[in-house]
Amino acid sequence: EQRVMALYDFQARSPREVTMKKGDVLTLLSSINKDWWKVEAADHQGIVPAVYVRRLAH
């Protein structure tokens, strides 16, 4: 499974989004949309801005 790391803090503004802190490692579920990526963090799935995360090497 692909992982991403948060580059910045992000506060969810809707139930579809995921709140994350800089340095958090999340599971990447989908990167089809270039602006918003779907991730999973602590059993919560949602979207985060793609520019706020970076793919981690396997």
Score class of each variant (00 low, 15 high):
14 S>C: 06
9 D>P: 04
21 K>E: 04
14 S>A: 03
30 S>T: 05
54 R>H: 15
51 V>P: 14
17 E>Y: 13
47 I>K: 04
43 D>Q: 15
13 R>N: 02
25 V>L: 00
40 E>Q: 14
27 T>Y: 11
21 K>H: 10
17 E>S: 00
41 A>E: 01
20 M>C: 04
54 R>K: 14
36 W>K: 05
2 Q>Y: 14
2 Q>N: 14
42 A>Y: 11
19 T>G: 01
13 R>K: 08
38 K>D: 07
45 Q>W: 01
39 V>E: 09
7 L>F: 06
51 V>G: 14
57 A>Y: 15
27 T>K: 14
56 L>Q: 01
54 R>Q: 13
24 D>Q: 15
2 Q>K: 11
45 Q>V: 13
3 R>E: 06
49 P>I: 09
18 V>L: 14
7 L>D: 11
44 H>K: 15
21 K>T: 04
48 V>D: 08
10 F>P: 04
25 V>I: 12
1 E>L: 07
51 V>K: 15
28 L>Y: 03
17 E>M: 13
21 K>Q: 12
38 K>W: 11
10 F>T: 03
26 L>K: 09
40 E>L: 05
14 S>K: 02
13 R>G: 07
40 E>P: 03
25 V>R: 08
42 A>P: 11
31 S>M: 12
8 Y>R: 15
51 V>L: 12
50 A>V: 02
46 G>A: 03
34 K>P: 12
38 K>V: 15
7 L>T: 03
45 Q>R: 12
42 A>R: 10
57 A>T: 12
44 H>C: 12
37 W>L: 15
8 Y>I: 13
15 P>N: 10
22 K>L: 07
30 S>M: 08
38 K>M: 13
5 M>Q: 09
39 V>S: 01
56 L>S: 13
28 L>F: 08
51 V>D: 14
47 I>E: 03
56 L>C: 11
51 V>H: 14
51 V>I: 14
18 V>Q: 05
44 H>W: 07
48 V>H: 08
17 E>N: 04
9 D>V: 00
24 D>V: 08
13 R>A: 10
50 A>M: 02
10 F>W: 15
15 P>S: 11
35 D>L: 04
54 R>I: 09
38 K>A: 10
6 A>G: 03
31 S>D: 15
41 A>L: 11
21 K>R: 12
12 A>P: 00
26 L>I: 04
29 L>G: 08
26 L>M: 09
45 Q>L: 04
22 K>C: 06
15 P>V: 06
45 Q>M: 05
45 Q>K: 13
29 L>N: 07
15 P>M: 00
49 P>H: 08
13 R>M: 03
10 F>I: 09
42 A>D: 13
22 K>S: 02
46 G>S: 00
38 K>H: 12
12 A>G: 03
54 R>L: 00
36 W>P: 07
37 W>G: 06
29 L>T: 10
44 H>N: 12
56 L>G: 04
25 V>G: 04
53 V>P: 06
25 V>E: 13
31 S>Y: 10
29 L>I: 10
47 I>C: 10
48 V>F: 04
2 Q>E: 13
17 E>Q: 10
44 H>G: 14
10 F>S: 04
53 V>L: 14
36 W>G: 03
41 A>C: 13
11 Q>R: 06
14 S>I: 10
1 E>G: 08
36 W>D: 06
40 E>I: 05
35 D>F: 08
1 E>R: 11
7 L>E: 04
37 W>H: 13
18 V>D: 03
42 A>K: 14
50 A>T: 09
50 A>E: 04
51 V>Y: 10
51 V>N: 12
3 R>K: 14
56 L>A: 01
54 R>N: 05
18 V>I: 12
15 P>D: 14
47 I>W: 15
3 R>V: 02
39 V>Q: 02
47 I>Q: 02
46 G>V: 00
36 W>V: 06
21 K>L: 03
26 L>V: 03
41 A>Y: 08
48 V>W: 02
50 A>L: 02
44 H>P: 00
5 M>N: 07
54 R>P: 10
24 D>N: 03
19 T>N: 11
11 Q>Y: 11
20 M>G: 02
21 K>D: 11
43 D>H: 14
8 Y>V: 15
12 A>Q: 07
56 L>K: 08
17 E>W: 02
24 D>R: 04
54 R>D: 13
4 V>M: 04
31 S>K: 11
33 N>A: 03
22 K>Q: 15
28 L>K: 05
20 M>L: 10
49 P>A: 00
31 S>A: 13
51 V>Q: 14
41 A>D: 05
3 R>A: 06
56 L>V: 11
2 Q>D: 15
20 M>F: 04
54 R>G: 07
35 D>G: 05
15 P>Q: 08
37 W>S: 00
57 A>V: 07
28 L>N: 10
56 L>T: 08
45 Q>N: 10
35 D>T: 07
20 M>S: 15
30 S>H: 06
6 A>W: 03
35 D>W: 03
46 G>L: 10
17 E>P: 08
29 L>S: 11
31 S>C: 11
46 G>E: 12
53 V>D: 02
26 L>Y: 11
23 G>D: 11
29 L>V: 13
32 I>T: 15
45 Q>I: 13
39 V>L: 01
4 V>S: 01
58 H>A: 15
10 F>K: 07
38 K>P: 04
38 K>Q: 13
18 V>Y: 01
58 H>I: 14
12 A>K: 04
41 A>N: 12
40 E>G: 11
39 V>K: 03
33 N>P: 09
57 A>H: 15
2 Q>F: 14
14 S>M: 00
35 D>Y: 10
43 D>V: 07
42 A>M: 08
40 E>H: 12
33 N>C: 00
17 E>G: 02
52 Y>H: 09
9 D>G: 05
2 Q>G: 11
30 S>V: 00
39 V>P: 09
29 L>P: 13
41 A>I: 07
29 L>M: 06
26 L>T: 07
30 S>Q: 09
19 T>W: 00
52 Y>L: 10
9 D>L: 06
40 E>T: 11
47 I>P: 09
4 V>L: 06
57 A>E: 15
30 S>L: 00
52 Y>F: 09
15 P>G: 08
34 K>D: 13
2 Q>H: 12
56 L>I: 12
58 H>T: 10
50 A>G: 00
10 F>E: 05
39 V>F: 05
2 Q>R: 08
5 M>I: 14
10 F>A: 03
20 M>I: 06
20 M>E: 04
9 D>A: 11
20 M>P: 02
19 T>F: 09
39 V>R: 01
17 E>I: 00
11 Q>C: 09
21 K>P: 06
47 I>M: 15
56 L>M: 12
25 V>M: 08
31 S>F: 07
52 Y>A: 13
34 K>S: 11
52 Y>I: 01
34 K>T: 13
22 K>G: 03
53 V>W: 05
51 V>C: 14
39 V>M: 02
21 K>V: 02
7 L>W: 04
29 L>Q: 09
20 M>A: 02
11 Q>P: 01
22 K>H: 09
52 Y>V: 04
22 K>R: 10
44 H>M: 12
6 A>F: 00
44 H>S: 13
11 Q>A: 09
18 V>K: 08
30 S>E: 12
8 Y>C: 15
13 R>H: 09
37 W>V: 15
53 V>Q: 03
39 V>N: 06
14 S>W: 01
52 Y>K: 07
38 K>Y: 10
17 E>A: 05
50 A>I: 12
8 Y>S: 11
9 D>S: 03
58 H>P: 15
17 E>C: 01
10 F>D: 02
35 D>N: 11
4 V>Q: 11
49 P>K: 07
41 A>G: 14
47 I>T: 04
3 R>P: 00
45 Q>Y: 07
52 Y>G: 05
43 D>G: 15
33 N>W: 02
28 L>R: 00
56 L>E: 06
30 S>W: 02
37 W>T: 12
35 D>R: 09
58 H>D: 15
37 W>Q: 05
54 R>M: 07
24 D>K: 10
48 V>I: 06
57 A>K: 15
49 P>Y: 04
5 M>W: 01
7 L>V: 11
3 R>T: 03
37 W>E: 02
19 T>V: 02
46 G>C: 09
33 N>T: 05
35 D>E: 09
53 V>S: 02
57 A>L: 02
10 F>Y: 15
36 W>Q: 08
5 M>V: 15
48 V>T: 03
30 S>K: 09
50 A>R: 13
13 R>L: 03
44 H>T: 12
12 A>E: 06
46 G>P: 04
26 L>D: 06
26 L>A: 07
33 N>G: 08
15 P>A: 10
52 Y>D: 06
1 E>A: 05
11 Q>H: 08
52 Y>W: 00
49 P>Q: 01
47 I>H: 11
33 N>H: 14
2 Q>I: 12
56 L>N: 05
39 V>C: 03
31 S>T: 13
52 Y>T: 05
33 N>S: 09
2 Q>L: 06
52 Y>E: 11
30 S>A: 05
39 V>W: 06
7 L>P: 03
29 L>W: 12
27 T>L: 03
39 V>T: 02
44 H>Q: 14
19 T>E: 03
36 W>M: 10
27 T>P: 09
40 E>R: 14
30 S>Y: 12
53 V>I: 04
56 L>F: 09
36 W>E: 15
41 A>W: 06
27 T>R: 15
51 V>A: 15
3 R>M: 08
30 S>P: 01
21 K>I: 02
5 M>C: 07
20 M>N: 11
46 G>Y: 01
28 L>D: 09
31 S>V: 15
56 L>R: 01
43 D>T: 11
24 D>F: 10
10 F>L: 05
58 H>Y: 14
39 V>A: 00
3 R>H: 08
56 L>Y: 11
20 M>T: 01
54 R>A: 09
5 M>S: 09
38 K>I: 13
11 Q>F: 10
57 A>W: 04
42 A>Q: 12
26 L>W: 03
42 A>W: 01
18 V>W: 00
48 V>E: 02
34 K>G: 08
28 L>W: 07
13 R>T: 11
10 F>Q: 06
47 I>N: 10
11 Q>N: 11
26 L>F: 10
50 A>Q: 07
49 P>T: 07
28 L>E: 08
